[in-house]
Amino acid sequence: MTAVPSAANHAFAASLSAIDWTQPWFQPFAAAGAGLAAVVADGASLHACLNQLAAGSGLRNGRGLPLKFIAQEELPAGTAYEANIHATGAVPTRDNLHDFFNALIWLHFPQAKARLNAIQAEVIGRTGVQAGRGGVRDAATLFDENAILFLSADASLEAALREFAWQELFVRRRQDWGRQCTVVPFGHALLEKLVNPYKSVTAHAWPLALPPVSAARPAMLDDAVAASLQAAADAGRLRGGRSFAPLPVMGIPGWSDANADAAFYADVTVFRLGRRQESEA
């Protein structure tokens, strides 16, 4: 007897079909993502497809165990999600956009994802699962869910980002985007939000002193992100949200037609003045 697709299956297929892979924020992942989305939307098993891709790429977790994607129901009761991935290599994955994008980031940034997971698992192993994650786990979770990599070897552009200098970053230095700086999304919740983008979408930017061309070299960028995460953890610089620079992503040149008008950036509810300036206002 042929199985009848459930309403949930239809909803997941429809959400995958709604992804516009030509949008600039999806383009780093479009080659793998569009094909995967198409076959899954056509009825293929998400887990089977992911496991085939993971095995073909030799993906492993931080302990060197082969990475595999399992149904959420297979996560043992009482076992933390992050601890399970580190202990077994098995990533609990639901049929929804959130977990689809999480898996896609595992395929694109396997070293960085494994390093993030190892950092989280180390804290869980040392302190257990508590009501509050603590600074390190908070930072790791924010990175995992909502990070965007800001690539620039120009320290003045990074300074503009960190100082909330939106006119400098997006207006006066507009022509430097693509030449002196670029971004690559990392957080899977961020990608999920960008399926239906809105002006106030704000990512947690992680600056890396790398030229924009690095975005076209996924393996090299993956290694650099993993190394930067470990260095930050070793130096005690993973401490919640203050580990990052807020970046309203729809202000990025080319990400919204509306931002061609400099008045777009006058909305201080989105392009905030920064903590110091706000306290002085």
Rank of each mutant, 00 (worst) to 15 (best):
A3Q: 07
P5V: 03
A8K: 06
N9H: 12
L16D: 11
S17A: 15
S17T: 13
I19K: 01
I19T: 05
W21Y: 11
W25A: 00
F29K: 00
G35P: 09
G35D: 12
V40G: 14
G43L: 09
G43N: 06
L46I: 04
H47M: 09
A48H: 08
C49R: 12
C49W: 04
L53Y: 03
A55N: 11
G58Q: 04
L59R: 01
N61F: 08
G64F: 07
P66A: 12
F69E: 12
I70M: 07
A80Y: 09
N84C: 12
A87H: 12
G89M: 09
V91H: 05
R94T: 07
D95N: 14
N96A: 00
L97Q: 04
F101L: 01
N102Q: 06
A103E: 03
L104V: 05
W106R: 01
E122F: 05
G125Q: 07
R126H: 14
T127F: 15
T127W: 10
G134F: 08
V136T: 14
R137P: 03
D138C: 01
L142G: 14
D144N: 14
D144K: 00
D144Q: 10
N146Y: 02
A147N: 08
I148F: 01
L151I: 03
S156K: 01
A160W: 07
L161E: 06
F164K: 05
A165L: 01
A165G: 14
A165H: 14
L169W: 07
R172M: 03
R173W: 03
R173Q: 12
Q175C: 00
W177H: 13
G178D: 10
R179C: 01
V184R: 13
G187M: 09
H188M: 06
L190H: 05
L194Q: 13
Y198H: 15
S200A: 15
S200F: 11
V201T: 14
T202P: 12
A205N: 04
A205G: 09
P211A: 11
S214L: 08
A215N: 03
R217L: 12
A219L: 08
M220L: 14
A224L: 02
L229Y: 05
A231S: 11
A232I: 04
A235V: 09
R237Y: 05
R242I: 14
R242P: 07
S243H: 07
P246G: 14
P248D: 11
M250Y: 12
G251Y: 11
P253A: 06
N259M: 11
D261K: 09
Y265V: 03
A266G: 15
V270C: 04
F271I: 07
R275F: 11
R275G: 00
Q277F: 06
